[in-house]
C-alpha cells in the first residue's frame, strides 16, 4: 500500500514538474508563433501578387499586343485539308 502511495506521489510530482517545465518553455515561444504567423501572411500575399502577375502576363490583351509587335496577325484565309 505504502509503495503504491509513494509511486503515485513521485508520479504526481514528476507530472507537476513536467507541466511547470512545459509551461515555462512554451511561454517564450510566442515570438516564434508571431514570426510564423507574419511569415505565413507575407507568403500568402506574395503568392497572390505572383498569381496576379501571371494572369496579367497571360491575358489575351497582353498576348495580342506582344504578338502584334512580333509581326503575327489573324490569318486572312484558312486552308482545309480533306
Amino acid at each position: 500500500m505504502n509503495i503504491i502511495l509513494k509511486v503515485s506521489g513521485v508520479f504526481l510530482a514528476v507530472l507537476v514538474l513536467l507541466q511547470i517545465w512545459v509551461s515555462h518553455t512554451m511561454i517564450t515561444q510566442g515570438s516564434n508563433l508571431k514570426r510564423i504567423e507574419d511569415l505565413e501572411r507575407q507568403l500568402s500575399q506574395e503568392n497572390l501578387i505572383l498569381e496576379n502577375e501571371i494572369a496579367t502576363t497571360a491575358a489575351f490583351l497582353n498576348i495580342a499586343t506582344a504578338s502584334a509587335s512580333l509581326g503575327f496577325s489573324v490569318p486572312k484565309t484558312v486552308q482545309y485539308i480533306r
Binding site: 509551461s23 512554451m26 511561454i27 515561444q29 510566442g30 515570438s31 508563433l33 508571431k34 504567423e37
Partner: peptide, 11 residues
C-alpha cells in the same frame, strides 16, 4: 490571449 510583450500565448 497575449503576453506582456503583446505576443500570442501558445496555450
Amino acid at each position: 490571449e497575449r503576453d506582456a510583450l503583446g505576443l500570442p500565448i501558445i496555450f
